[in-house]
């Protein structure tokens, strides 16, 4: 064959580029996107995947070609050319990755900001201005590595950051749910109705805020279809704020090792249409709390031993009034 190497290289470059771009768009690697955050995360992932696929095939291709083309011929005991380096080339392959990661950083920052990541604990809308001031001060002192330094609720001092209000979003969320992780279940409390459940019910298209904490050990609240995850930390409250965009039922998965039944610590989130949601709310108000709580996270076959149910019993035994739950959220650091 007499095709010049430059042409071959060019063709290979074009092929890899097209392949990466195509894979970046048509990979189907992520589950369906059911929250308003998901689209941003997905496009970020797709972009990073395209770049990664390109670089992967570049390096891989060079290695495979080298293995074929430059392998030692039988009987050839000589050395290769004594090339020690090439400064322009080295500058090039320092600069290109640098530009790429800076680009990815900026893009990630942008998406993160859109998700509300930069403003996680903005409860200012809930509070009177004076309270905000106090909060700012206490929190500025708290500074440090852990607490979010921008704002906090003085009634619940131990806030840690999650994903908060989107830029420009000043109103409080339409729906707030308190989420409590415990070995090995999630308990959802709806301050609006005072009801408690083991599954999460939220309306589609409305701004939802989850205030997440844990009772015993670390857990992590994860809904893959929302692309949202947040650790539940005993003694602290973290927040996730989002809008569910697709009605349906999605898994809630515990993503932080929390003990032997960690794998079984799963439940569901129901994203209701507005009518369904209204209906569900009515049944809640009508039927009280206990029945629903029993239904939480039905343990699958082998899990029904007493040990698994123990925490439920404990949870059931106590007063599930919103005040009580509220105290549990804020107060476990003082026990």
């Amino acid at each position: 064959m007499n095709i010049p190497t430059t042409i071959l290289t060019l063709l290979a470059g074009i092929t890899i580029t097209l392949l990466s771009l195509w894979l970046g768009q048509n990979n189907n690697l992520l589950p369906i996107a059911a929250s308003d955050n998901a689209a941003g995360v997905d496009s970020l992932f797709n972009a990073m995947l395209a770049i990664s696929v390109g670089l992967f095939f570049l390096v891989q291709g060079l290695i495979v070609i080298a293995a074929i083309k430059f392998r030692q011929q039988p009987g050839d005991e000589s050395d290769g050319p004594p090339i020690h380096g090439n400064i322009p080339l080295e500058i090039l392959w320092t600069a290109i990755p640098a530009v790429l990661v800076l680009g990815i950083s900026v893009y990630s920052f942008e998406i993160y900001n859109q998700m509300g990541g930069l403003d996680p604990m903005d409860h200012s809308a809930h509070m009177k201005p004076a309270a905000v001031q106090v909060a700012m001060q206490t929190d500025a002192m708290a500074g440090g590595l852990l607490a979010d330094g921008t704002s906090a609720d003085p009634n619940r001092p131990n806030f840690a950051a999650g994903v908060g209000a989107k830029p420009g979003q000043m109103d409080p969320a339409d729906v707030t749910v308190n989420v409590m992780g415990l070995q090995y279940a999630w308990i959802f409390t709806y301050p609006e109705t005072g009801s408690v459940s083991g599954e999460l019910h939220i309306p589609v298209g409305q701004d939802v805020e989850l205030d997440i904490t844990a009772q015993d050990v670390l857990h992590a609240f994860w809904v893959p279809q929302f692309r949202l995850k947040q650790d539940a930390i005993p003694g602290k409250t973290t927040q996730l704020r989002f809008v569910a965009t697709q009605p349906g039922t999605y898994p809630i998965v515990c993503a932080e090792l929390c003990g032997s039944y960690h794998g079984g610590m799963r439940t569901q989130v129901f994203v209701h249409t507005p009518e369904e949601y209204e209906q569900w709310k009515q049944t809640q108000i009508a039927s009280g709390i206990e029945t629903e709580a029993i239904a939480m996270a039905p343990p699958s076959d082998s899990q029904s031993d007493g040990e698994f149910l123990e925490p439920f019993a404990e949870a059931m035994a106590m007063d599930m009034s919103p005040e009580m739950m509220h105290q549990m959220h804020a107060g476990s650091s003082h026990s």
């Binding site: 970020l44 990815i104 990630s108 998406i111 994903v163 994860w222 893959p224 995850k229 932080e256 090792l257």
Partner: peptide, 10 residues
């Protein structure tokens, strides 16, 4: 990348 890691962490 933080937004992506929130999804895939752990």
């Amino acid at each position: 990348s933080v937004p992506f890691d929130i999804h895939v962490h752990d």
